[in-house]
Every structure is written in C-alpha cells, then in structure tokens.
Amino acid sequence: MPASHPPPERQCTAHRSGDGERCKNWALKNMRVCRYHGGANGRSKAAAERRRAEAVVDAQARRTLAALGAAPVENPLVALSQLAGEVNAFKDALAERVNELSNIRYSTDHGEQVRAEVTLYERAMDRAASVLGTIARLNIDERLAAISERQADAVIRAIDAALAHAGVTGQLATEARQVAARKLRAVT
C-alpha cells in the first residue's frame, strides 16, 4: 500500500460502487467513513461527536479501574460474584451521573443528541443483566455453599485427626470440637 493510503484502522470502511473494493481514502476524525461516503453530513458528524464523548468517559472509567489493580483469579466463582458487585457499582455510579443531568439530550448544529452518560448507563445496565444472568444460570450461590461445606468438612476431619493424635477423646474431644466450631463461625 503506498504511503498516501491510510492504515486499515483509519481507512474509510465504505466500498466503491463500481468495483466493490474498499475505499482508499482516510476516514474523517472520529468517523468510519471519508467525506465522499457520508462523513460530511450532519448525522455522521453527530455520531462522531457522540463516539468522542463516549471515549472520554470510557477512558476516565478505565483509568479509575486500572488504579484498582488486579490479582490473579484463584476462585472463578468468587471472582464472578465480585465482578457482579463491581458491575452493579459502576452502573450505580453512572446512574448518579445521569440523575445529575438537567436533560438527557443536547443540541448541536447537527441536531439533537443523547448524552454519552445516558448511553454508557444503558450499556452498564446491559452488562449487569448479563453478569447477573450468568450467575443465576451457573447457580453460583449453590456452588459456593457446596465448596464451603466441603472446606468445613475438611477442617472438621483435620480437627478430629489432631484430637485423636493428641489422645483427646470422649467429652474433652466433644468440647474441643464445639470450641473450634464457635471460632470458625466467628471467622465466616
């Protein structure tokens, strides 16, 4: 491709009507098409402005999330539950921004537009529904309960083995199990 042609990500996405080949012109800034394929009309300019505004809000959200850091996932069921909490918190934060708006539309020379915050809030609601739907479909609560029960059984067997090894039996062993159970309940 000659140097005058844009890289594929900046190239007009329209196709020429004569031969069906992709247009070789540069797409206009924040647009997917060149001026010859509709980039100069008001609707395209408004869509580009909306994408630019969404990109600004999205970049702010990404910086905020990046500052939180990330650890490897050891338990995907717990991680999915935590993700659901984060998705809901993000949705709620966007809801607050939307509630602070005096109107959800604004006017430009190219017509009336929906604010980027409203669009992002709608997407956040969709993501929350998707994550919560996944949790419901996978029966996460039941699976986590089953894991907790298996872990509790393993702890009880370990306590029983330690008591038997130490020679503690009868009433003393029962009392030791009760103390261990109270301490474990206090931790969970």
Rank of each mutant, 00 (worst) to 15 (best):
T64Y: 01
V57G: 00
A164H: 05
A40S: 12
L94K: 01
P2A: 11
Q151N: 11
T64F: 07
A47P: 00
R51T: 04
L65E: 12
A89T: 09
A89R: 15
A79R: 09
A128F: 07
A162I: 00
V187A: 14
V179I: 14
A48Q: 03
T108G: 15
A146G: 05
D19I: 06
Y36E: 11
Q11S: 06
L144M: 11
A84P: 02
L120D: 02
E117M: 02
D141R: 13
R43V: 06
G69V: 09
D126E: 12
A176I: 05
S148P: 00
A128R: 07
N139M: 05
A152V: 05
L77W: 07
V87R: 13
R185N: 15
P72E: 10
A176F: 05
L94T: 02
W26S: 04
V131W: 04
H15L: 04
G111R: 09
R43N: 04
A186E: 15
A71C: 01
A67S: 15
R32K: 06
A66L: 10
R143Y: 10
V187G: 00
R63C: 12
G39R: 01
R105N: 07
C12K: 03
A181N: 11
R177M: 08
G20Y: 10
W26C: 02
H165Q: 12
D160F: 03
R157A: 15
V57K: 04
A47F: 11
L83E: 09
D141P: 00
R185Y: 13
R22G: 07
K91C: 14
N25W: 02
A93Q: 09
G18F: 08
A162T: 09
N103D: 14
C12Q: 07
A40G: 05
F90C: 04
A173G: 05
F90L: 14
C23P: 06
A27W: 01
L83W: 10
V114S: 05
S44E: 14
V87G: 00
D126L: 13
A66S: 12
R143H: 14
R62G: 03
Q11G: 03
I159H: 01
R35I: 08
Y106Q: 04
T134K: 04
V33N: 03
Y106W: 11
A161Q: 14
E21G: 11
L65S: 13
G38N: 03
A66T: 07
A154N: 10
A3W: 03
A152C: 02
A48Y: 07
R10T: 00
R35G: 15
R43M: 08
E122T: 09
H110G: 01
L184E: 12
A79L: 04
E149Y: 04
L144C: 05
V98S: 02
A128S: 12
Q151R: 13
A181E: 12
W26M: 10
A47G: 09
T108A: 12
Q171N: 00
A145N: 14
G18M: 09
T119M: 06
T119D: 10
A166H: 10
S130V: 02
E54H: 01
L94C: 02
G133E: 08
Y36Q: 06
L138Y: 13
G42N: 12
R43C: 00
K29G: 11
P6R: 00
V118N: 06
P72M: 06
S44G: 04
P8E: 07
